[in-house]
Simulated scan of single mutants.
Amino acid sequence: MSTTAVKPPRRRGRRRVFNTVNVSAVVIALVTAAPIYWLLVNSITPTGEMGTLPPTFWPSEPTLTHYEEAFGQHAFGRYVFNSLLVACLATTFVLGLSLFAGYALARMPVRGKGPIMVFLLMISVFPTIAVVTPLYMIERSLGLLNTHVGLILPYVAFNLPFAVWIMRNYLKDLPYELEESAQIDGASTTRTVWSVILPTVRPGLFAVGVFTFTACLTEFLMAMTFNSEDDMRTVPVGIALFGSEFEVPFGTIFAASVATVLPIAVLALVFRRAVVAGMTAGAVKG
């Protein structure tokens, strides 16, 4: 009498795991998207409909009045200009410096690489509030308060360590044949970095650029402390000061917040593959 071995139900187990992962992904996506949806809906909801019970998930009469108030009654356009200028310039400096610093730490015989990387990691997690007062005193003595430079310099200083860490890990495992072929052709180190290394590390640069730009665009504490004049305020500070003693214009705040989140969302969508590739490589190549 022949007997057949009963195989364990592997497919059912795999399907359960697969279904659990799918359900978890859907739940996480809904939880993440809910605040963004609520922000967008309230930005086009008339003031009289806000805060009603039960809440409405879509306004009966959508309006763009809050956007008109944000860009009309307030100096929101000036805030946007300040934020974009500071974020773009700071990101540009961080990209250039992190590329060469990461290349030096990854490809050149630099002494003390381990302590340097530990020091960079410590700086990247250092709380801003612990140094904002000394920085304020330094900038006041140098005459940098209420200037764009007064924000660009600390933004570069605080975002550069994390950028160098990512670029160093990304450059670490690149094949040395790329540089050897360039050196045989007589290229200098600078020419090698710009002509040979730069095209191969674009995903890492995209990741650094998006994260640095987002951090600079949404930073609040230093922008609030260093720039007190209305013409020099950035978007986060300007939105926080929209309210008055007797009124908080929630609709205007929602509209301004949507206009602030929009460029970040566009960046994330356009460069999502490059950002994921750069962050994955920077995390795995230790």
Rank of each mutant, 00 (worst) to 15 (best):
S141W: 05
L171S: 06
M117A: 08
Y155C: 00
N159P: 02
V110E: 12
E179C: 10
W165A: 08
L151G: 03
R168I: 05
L121V: 09
P154D: 06
S141L: 08
L135F: 05
L135T: 06
A130G: 06
P175C: 11
I123G: 05
V131K: 00
M167C: 11
S181R: 05
L121E: 10
D173W: 04
L178T: 11
H148L: 04
A163R: 00
Y155G: 00
F119A: 12
E177R: 05
I116W: 00
P115G: 13
L144W: 07
A163F: 03
S124G: 10
D173A: 13
Y170D: 05
P154C: 09
A182L: 09
V125D: 06
N159Q: 14
G114Q: 10
E180C: 10
A130Q: 09
F162S: 07
M167G: 04
L171A: 13
Y176F: 13
D173P: 14
M137R: 10
D173T: 14
N146A: 10
Y136N: 07
Y170V: 13
T133R: 02
I123W: 05
L174D: 04
K172Q: 13
V118G: 12
S181T: 15
L171E: 02
P175H: 08
V149G: 15
I152Y: 02
N169W: 03
P161Q: 07
M137L: 15
H148A: 08
A130H: 07
V131A: 04
V164D: 04
L121N: 14
